[in-house]
Design a protein around this nucleic acid. Sequence first.
DNA 1: AAATCTAATTACTTTATGTTACTAAAGAAT
DNA 2: ATTCTTTAGTAACATAAAGTAATTAGATTT
Lengths: 118, 118
Amino acid sequence: MALKLRKNKAETLPPLCAVGECMVLLGGAWTPNVIWYLSGGARRFGELKSDMPLISAKMLSARLKDMEEKGVVTRTVMPTSPPSVEYALTELGAELVPALKAIVSVGQRLKVRRAEAA
Amino acid sequence: MALKLRKNKAETLPPLCAVGECMVLLGGAWTPNVIWYLSGGARRFGELKSDMPLISAKMLSARLKDMEEKGVVTRTVMPTSPPSVEYALTELGAELVPALKAIVSVGQRLKVRRAEAA
DNA sequence: AAATCTAATTACTTTATGTTACTAAAGAAT
DNA sequence: ATTCTTTAGTAACATAAAGTAATTAGATTT
């Protein structure tokens, strides 16, 4: 067998790829946006809906339910009428915010870059 | 019309939500992983495939094509036989790495946390 | 000549996401 | 008393993305 000049494992990278660990919580359509808007404090269903005009009620509902199951957000029904429901980040959810901030800051640079290119 | 005690816009958050700008490039199944493995230097199709044992050839191929179209990676056919194809991050692709690092570091903390909980 | 290697592609299935319309319950308006 | 409005959804349906398995093609190797 000939010598392989090229490494066949990415040994210079951190031992385990933990991307997946985080992407499970961050993945799924609209999830980053929901976390983003909740990072400013608790918000109600309808408020989140108007923060993201393009999301459908179904998707927002599905995403919030997922996130609740994963322990990223809490859901609190307020005793108003009609009843309103408040969502907030859990401690776990809050841990995702720094990663999201990094994503946003790259996003902003990309935006600037595109504006300059035009 | 009654006074609204609750802000109906998330005004305390940064003016524009740039998450989407970045998620377009980072979104899609396996994309973060591909960027991660390319962040250590150029790699061939088969190498990426074995870096990510669970990805199918079809998905890897599709994702790399997407990423090439979006200007995140370059594709170079090497004049070997059988021909091998080398992929590398572009400058734009490299800009995504810091965000990814933030994601990985959160991922690692989540992993540790789970290990402690068990 | 048959098997192997690399980098795919094709056909098909399953899961995820998106659209539109509708519901339930309470209070306010007519 | 009946209709309208608001909040937080759900149900039925349509499309897009992702996953599986088998196949391709050219150049070695056996």
